[in-house]
Amino acid sequence: MERNIKLFEEFQQALLEVNRIKAAEIFDEYYNINQSFEELEQLTMKALEVIGDGWEEGQLSLSQVYMSGVICEGLIEKYLPDHLVTNGAELKIAIGVLQDHHSLGKRIVYSILSSSGYHLIDFGQGLSVDEIVEKTINENIDILLISTLMLPSALKVKQVVEMIKKKGSPAKVIVGGAPFRLDKELWRRVNADADGKNGIEVQKIIKRFSEGGKQS
């Protein structure tokens, strides 16, 4: 147990230093001790949660959050077969960037959800309202994650929500990105179902939605 705690701290430090090799060594050692995929998943999720919280509190940088997510995603992929989806297998989840080509936020959420065993369909970036709606309908998406960078794109989420509802889709829409961070009530005004402040928060919201709950 003590060794696990120490390894967790070292793993977190390796992620913050963007030290892929060190992180992989610790990951291997952790697996050798615990012999469990679930424990590995817990290790990465706990580390990413602490790092995400550090960013929310202004202690860590977005680049550290991103690089940590990418490193963890790679490590998890190494240990888990591609087809093995351990979470949310009953849900079809998609993610896309509305209107612009800045995809860092999408990539962070994608990495964190992949690291925790979710399978996501990547709709890409630079999507128009029509494109994201069409893809959501055609793919029978249950949960749509929309990332935005600028206010005009964030405001267009309202049209997306209206159009997918009009077309009879029950998809829940979770939004994220700078405009929603800067205006805490914006997600409500665009009629999104939830505000995904970071990857870990998105994961919790998905879990809540899959259990029939909603964001208050």
Partner: peptide
């Protein structure tokens, strides 16, 4: 990429 109601944005890198 120009839009009608916001700052012009960079397209594909």
């Amino acid at each position: 990429v120009f839009t009608e109601d916001g700052p012009p944005n960079s397209g594909q890198p």
